[in-house]
Design a protein around this nucleic acid. Structure first.
Length: 503
DNA sequence: ATGTCC
């Protein structure tokens, strides 16, 4: 298999766009987004996964984004569309891993002082811990979490009752890609029934401990980052920023996290169940990849998966909104009177039912971000119909992150863009090859503070692709345009990761 | 991603 999958298989059509013919030339080709430099970053395993995913049962469209790299069954950084099947692998173990951005009514000058930034880091960490398990949040600061009914969170998502219990401003629900998710039959009763079954059967052990994780970041590539907003200087970007509620040269807070132990448990339970069934029934898997299990829509297996995915997604939604509420509280403790407003909350690990090619289909975005441009039917009755919705893309602390808005060209990528820079080095390779002093010096040079004594090498900017080249790909392909740049002032990560890598 | 296989 070695020489079979390589970037030369991509046929370039220009404008950072190309295609790979589907396996045996059956059906639509894989759409590939990326400049020449980006196409060279797609390794064998990533391309093999893309081909397996494209040839999988019921799959009609596959898009490979510029940040694509090897993932679980399907590449991280791809879009998989099926009108007939649901695929748990291309949603992933961190159901509804997402980005959110909180805009502060606070000029950039307010976070120049390093003492103020240190105080903010500490106030934020007290409320929204990082790392495995429940983290180190103090009991006093965790009080809001212990008052919420965990079952309601899974069943209702960011409902008025749940938001009120957690001190989340109700208007933030309108700044979500989806504020809640319903079950396979479009009711929340389906979720209530499914959850009662899971709990009765002991399928979600330590349920309350998982609920307490609400308002925490977790580890890996998750982070919280204080930013200074630099609006792009053109009329369209200015208009979009106005609708998004973004303020030039002001402070904002960018968060990346997902559904924590709850989503992990729901997802891994589904993988186990489906893999056992495929084995028992002797059904061949696409490319013999057991991570590409699937369920035909309408079966009990698909219904159970859709219900579990919805509950994991509801947990992630409330987790993100609570983090934003707690981060705002932390800012207010350090800088009394400061105001904050959610700009947007948008996922990059979720399957959504959308219209593609004129029919309803499940659009699986695995490390990919929805990108509906102005006038898209789905944005009617939202604040974003005239502009398109905000697209939140983390790059890296040194080179910055970006807020974009979709262009009409996004149709060719099933209305999707990348979800970040994408890894170019595996974690082990990054820990082995990168120099700790250089990693820390890079952040220091940009005057970016962090809670980590040493920054995790496997999360260093050098472990990721060139973000500028990734964004060039998106713009040249006509998928989206920049609205604002986000310049990091401090970054909060799982500090234990760094200590591990420093050994 | 995940107390990294309840």
């Amino acid at each position: 298999m070695s020489a079979e999958f390589n970037p030369q298989m991509i046929q370039v059509t220009g404008g950072a766009t190309g295609f790979i013919p589907a396996p045996e030339n059956k059906g639509k080709p894989i759409t590939v987004i990326g400049t020449k430099a980006i196409r060279q970053t797609f390794d064998e395993k990533c391309l093999e996964q893309a081909m397996n995913s494209r040839g999988a049962p019921g799959v009609t469209d596959l898009v490979l984004n510029p940040d694509a790299h090897c993932g679980y069954g399907a590449p991280v950084g791809c879009v998989l569309v099926s009108p007939t099947h649901i695929y748990p692998g291309p949603v992933g173990v961190d159901i509804k891993c997402s980005m959110s951005l909180l805009q502060m009514d606070l000029p950039a000058d307010a976070v120049v002082d390093r003492g103020v930034r240190r105080a903010l880091i500490n106030a934020i960490l007290e409320r929204t811990p990082t790392g495995a398990g429940r983290g180190q949040r103090s009991a006093r600061k965790a009080r809001k979490v212990s008052t919420v009914n965990g079952e309601k969170v899974l069943i209702e998502g960011a409902s008025p009752v749940v938001c009120a219990a957690l001190g989340i401003p109700q208007e933030w629900a309108s700044r979500c890609e989806d504020a809640f998710h319903v079950g396979h039959d479009d009711t929340k009763d389906a979720l209530g029934n499914r959850l009662a079954y899971l709990i009765a059967e002991g399928k979600i052990p330590n349920f309350e401990e998982k609920v307490i994780q609400l308002g925490s970041y977790g580890g890996g590539n998750h982070f919280g980052e204080c930013e200074v907003v630099e609006l792009v200087d053109n009329q369209r970007a200015r208009r979009a920023a106005e609708v998004f509620g973004m303020k030039d040269n002001c402070v904002a807070f960018l968060s990346h996290c997902g559904s924590r132990g709850m989503g992990h448990r729901l997802a891994s339970g589904q993988f186990r169940t489906l893999q056992e069934k495929f084995e028992r029934w002797g059904i061949a898997l696409p490319g013999q990849d057991k991570e590409l299990v699937y369920a035909p829509l309408g079966t009990a297996e698909a219904n159970d998966y859709l219900d579990d995915m919805a509950m994991g997604a509801n947990f992630a939604t409330v987790n993100h909104l609570l983090i934003n509420a707690l981060v705002l509280e932390a800012f207010q403790e350090v800088i009394p009177g400061v105001k904050g407003q959610l700009v947007y909350f948008i996922s990059h690990n979720i399957a959504r039912r959308e219209r593609v090619n004129g029919e309803e289909a499940w659009v699986h975005r695995k490390g990919a971000t929805r990108a509906f441009p102005a006038g898209h039917y789905s944005l009617i009755d939202t604040p974003y119909y005239e502009t398109g919705h905000p697209i939140l893309l983390p790059g890296n602390p040194q080179d910055g992150s970006v807020v974009m808005v979709a262009d009409s060209g996004a149709e060719k990528s099933c209305y999707s863009v990348n979800h970040g820079a994408g890894r170019c080095k595996g974690r082990k390779a990054a820990i082995r090859e990168l120099d700790q002093e250089k990693v820390d010096a890079g952040l220091a040079k940009h005057d970016i503070l962090t809670n980590c004594r040493v920054y995790p090498k496997d999360e260093a900017p050098a472990a990721y692709k060139d973000f500028g080249e990734v964004l060039r790909s998106v713009e040249e392909a006509g998928l989206a345009s920049p609205v604002a740049k986000l310049k990091a002032r401090f970054v909060i990560k799982d500090a234990e990761l760094g200590l591990r890598g420093a050994a």
